[in-house]
Nucleic acid binder design. Structure first.
Lengths: 113, 113
DNA sequence: CAGTTAATTAACTTATCGGTTTAATAATGC
DNA sequence: GCATTATTAAACCGATAAGTTAATTAACTG
């Protein structure tokens, strides 16, 4: 029933899940590794991972008895795309034209750095 | 109990509330104006507005018996700031240096946060 | 095989969410 | 004062969220 963007924002609306994504931004990790810093049970962390997976923010592979988690940024890109339309409200340098140009750049696969 | 960022993402995790913000991005509006496009009761919309207000995404003033709603983008800026750290994962043109330069550009013009 | 480690599932509790209908508050206009 | 309009509050409901503990699955190891 929930659209992808709602799933993404809902997944991000929890500090534990945001911390998990931050951890994964430094590299893949197993469930136990991910759970270690948190003062909650392993099943609780497992549920958070399920929410993140449901939102497409992580994927899980299998390696023996471990299930390494991997960050998937595509939904974050979509969330960013939604927020981008409001940038002009907080940043004077992003007026409508700038915003349009930025979206062009973001959507263009050629790499001009 | 919820931190501001969680409140913001939770508020965005509903298509009705996102549509309300989109409407307000075109100008202030009263509750009835906001509710008109939706197939739900007025109290339901009023509750959504309360959630948005609780997240700091809107403010409400009073003008006679109307309560015009106004978009407040500051929490969106914070949400964007959180997501920004992941930009390098989906956009090759935003490597760490580009990201740093972007934040400089975004942070300089108005220093009100 | 038995034992250990990794992770998930099941069952349950408590709280919050998103909606409803009905009632109340607040301001305007006659 | 009384009716009308705008908005919120109260009470309620079903579904979902976030956590727990206990049990289960899955894979490795001696």
């Amino acid at each position: 029933m929930s659209d992808p963007l709602s799933l993404t924002f809902a997944a991000l609306a929890d500090p534990t899940r945001r911390a998990i994504l931050a951890r994964l931004s430094e590299g893949d990790a197993t469930v136990n590794d991910i759970a270690a810093p948190f003062e909650m049970s392993l099943p609780a962390v497992s549920k958070h991972l399920k929410v993140l997976e449901g939102a497409g923010l992580i994927t899980r592979s299998r390696s023996a008895q471990w299930r390494p988690c991997h960050l998937e940024a595509a939904p974050l890109k979509d969330a960013d795309g939604w927020i981008a339309r409001y940038r002009r409200f907080w940043d004077a340098s992003f007026d409508r034209l700038d915003d349009y140009l930025r979206e062009l750049q973001a959507g263009d696969p050629d790499k001009k750095s």
